[in-house]
Design a binder for these strands. Structure first.
Lengths: 114, 114
DNA sequence: CGGAATCCTCTTCGATACTG
DNA sequence: CAGTATCGAAGAGGATTCCG
């Protein structure tokens, strides 16, 4: 789902920490379990995914629902507030589509100057 | 111009590094000198302001023009590419106006839960 | 005036292993 | 399955001092 090779680290705009935006996009299609998030968000360790989810929960962006079953099951879901982040995310994606390559070219020109 | 007491560090959306957005907003009204940027952007040290400006210059967001005078004078100006950042910045400001306080309330409720 | 140099702290992120 | 515990690396950001 997310290409680890994409130069997203160069993006000048960030939503929350490194993984928050990916979590939010993943949760847009409905509630997801912990392990269902780990798959598309490649490269995230359980510890960091937990950190990210806790921070999002603290800010009221997601809800966490634990089911007392064996095996345990936990679902994360976007809240109304979490969905409000989609407008700025969309604006940032539009910016990236229009200007990201120009920025990378400017950067390369700068680095290759003498 | 920018209140250091404002909880901007809690903002889930960031443009570039900690100070880039403020620099861009300051430069919107026209070219500014190094020391003219240091005043409104309270709390930034020369080193970090230099870092920020270099990074923005590298990415083609600002131009740096040094005048060989005594005393020296350096002016920074937004490029066309730098101005494109205004759309996402505006979207983020709109988000903050609408939802920032709700996020802070959710956070406080989370922290005060038993 | 507009930085550069140095040193330092704090946070973020990750690897690995283990558990209720 | 859904985490937690521990350790460690790395980078951002800051304080202070010095320079052309």
């Amino acid at each position: 789902m997310f290409d680890p090779a994409c130069p997203s680290s160069a993006m000048p705009i960030r939503i929350g920490d490194k993984w928050s935006a990916q979590v939010i996009v993943c949760l847009d299609e409905g509630p997801r379990r912990f392990s269902e998030l780990q798959v598309p968000i490649r490269g995230v360790t359980p510890k960091v995914l937990t950190q990210t989810l806790r921070a999002l929960e603290r800010d009221g962006m997601v809800t966490r629902t634990a089911y007392a079953e064996i095996p345990p099951r936990v679902e994360y879901e976007l809240t109304e507030l979490g969905r409000t982040l989609f407008a700025p995310i969309a604006a940032c994606r539009a910016w990236a589509a229009d200007n990201f390559s120009a920025m990378l070219e400017a950067r390369e020109a700068y680095d290759n100057r003498d």
